[in-house]
Amino acid sequence: MISRTMLGPQRTVTTVGSVLSRLDIGSGPVCTITAGWQEREGELEELQRHVNRPTRELSLYHRAEEVFSRNPDFRDAYHRRQKTLKELQRLYRRRLAHAIAALEELMRERGNDMLIQNERRAALRALRTLDRQHLRRIDHIHAAFVQSQETMLPADLMAHRKEIAGLVADSSAVLIAGGHVELLLNRLRLFDLATGLKARPVIAWSAGAMALSERIVLFHDNPPQGAGIAEVADRGLGLFSGVLPLPHAGKRLRLHDSERVSLFARRFAPARCSTLEDGTALTWIDDRLTDAVSAFRLTRSGALRPVKAA
């Protein structure tokens, strides 16, 4: 039985220690992944106080920097891919703004109900299609990169992968912290962690939970610049299936605006959009949700409903 838990932000309400202690995993060391903290990676004093057992930081951020500095051709190819993804994201954003504007205009329309409802549904379908197409294009770019590098991956990268796989296999659990979600996801991919993580108990919070979900959706309804349109950014590792985690949803989303909540829920269905706030814990055992604490699901009606365990 493999358990996987996603938690809310750990900054003010730290629950990772108590969640870990409830897992039936013995007292062995746990691996930590804090690559999302970037240059602060591995600063574990605070976390160790809560975890209260030996930790092994996998240092994905620093290992990647080392690999890049030793293998400039690989680094350049990697950066070219990132540049292409960034440009693709920019172009997607251009289309997204129009797709959202069309839907919002139709939401404001009054008149013949059936006609308008049909057009609204069509606009939502167009939006979902755009998200799907974007994800497919991202997949193609990743696949092309993997194919181009397949036979020429740096030896030190392969050595790191092997060492990391060993550390993960020997650990009693893996803890994945939040931070920069794109960077974290890229490092998880670079060191080929998807397979290893599937075989170990995992506790992930905030961006860590996002990186392990099926789709990475970036969101903020009230940014200081720009329109605040949620955007699909990548595919995650897919360890948390069927759920779209929304860390800091209370701060980032207008959860009292039922129209926005409803649109969010319908746009990303069938994934269940779930808030991750301080104290939230959702635990799956062998893909069955067995425990749910302080999590709310965004629903098609625009209301928030408590997430319930099976």
Partner: peptide, 18 residues
Amino acid sequence: LQDGLSWLFPGPLWMVYE
């Protein structure tokens, strides 16, 4: 200051979820 600084130096708001 919020409007000015965040326009001149956009923060990592969209990418960072701590």
